[in-house]
Design a protein around this nucleic acid. Structure first.
Lengths: 149, 149
DNA sequence: CCTCATATGTCAGTACTCTTACATACAGTG
DNA sequence: CACTGTATGTAAGAGTACTGACATATGAGG
């Protein structure tokens, strides 16, 4: 293993693990998990999105997303059509209560993210964002890049 | 939610998710999971480490680490004393086969990390590392920082 | 010496996510 | 129209990690 860069993977894991833990703590008073929050968040960004598409946005399988959606529906935070207009996709959307819960959750989550970036200047935060975006782009497609040589 | 910075949490999750997926793919031919790799990796960094300490390094509970360690012991990659010299900690270490497996795994993982950073200059990679380290530091302790105002 | 706090190992139960598999609905092509 | 490919929803099962609880071993302090 090389000397300098390879620990970036570990730092990435460490940062993500801590962010998840702090978000979980922050959301606990609302009775929401981070997964629930992510679901609601993307549901607001794209009202009427299908469960499968939502699953891709939140990096889980569509089976897991269906379970989570059902929980949120049972709690009255999400509504979902029981018949598809076209195709099989059943559009889901936030209810009034869902919007309220998400508003409260956003405030808490924003606080955690601000705390995460509190040791960085705006320029450094922007650089962090660019670095992460470049990493995402480089890892986006499955499989190995053309072998060296 | 604010306009610019808050998406960094999502980028962090996205990057970590993709890194994990690519590492899993790369390690599959060896029959190792990313969790197994992390375990072996830290076992080499700190030979004789206890299961609980190893769990902290790899961000899982000591119960989960015990299960993983047992799997690796059953495969002959790790050895563990059955009696503690002092206290209750049972020191674990890599076997000859474990070192060989880890050597092969390190090469594959390094390739993935290099791919992740391939779109960044060395200076940008360093900045990414510093940003992540600062994020880890800011999120390190549980609980909320003193409320604003 | 005794007590308390901390750390480790372990067991049992729970919850969550994934893998695998199948049925359905549309789009494109012959 | 029939066939193929892709996308979605759903169900069943396995695998994995977590929470809660308890016993044990050491060190600090009275």
């Amino acid at each position: 293993m090389a000397i300098d860069s390879p620990q970036i993977g570990y730092l990435l894991k460490h940062a993500q693990s801590l962010l998840h833990a702090r978000m979980e703590e922050a959301l606990r008073p609302l009775g929401l998990t981070v997964s629930h929050y992510s679901c609601l968040h993307h549901l607001r960004l794209e009202p009427g999105i299908s469960s499968s598409a939502l699953a891709r946005r939140t990096f889980v399988t569509r089976q897991s997303m269906n379970v989570m959606l059902q929980q949120l529906i049972d709690r009255g935070l999400v509504s979902r059509a029981d018949r598809a207009d076209s195709g099989r996709a059943l559009p889901a959307a936030l209810t009034r209560d869902g919007i309220a819960a998400l508003d409260a959750a956003e405030r808490l989550v924003d606080g955690v993210e601000q705390r995460m970036l509190s040791g960085l200047t705006p320029a450094q935060s922007a650089a962090l964002g660019r670095g992460l975006a470049a990493s995402v782009a480089a890892l986006a497609v499955s499989g190995m890049p053309p072998a060296s040589t």
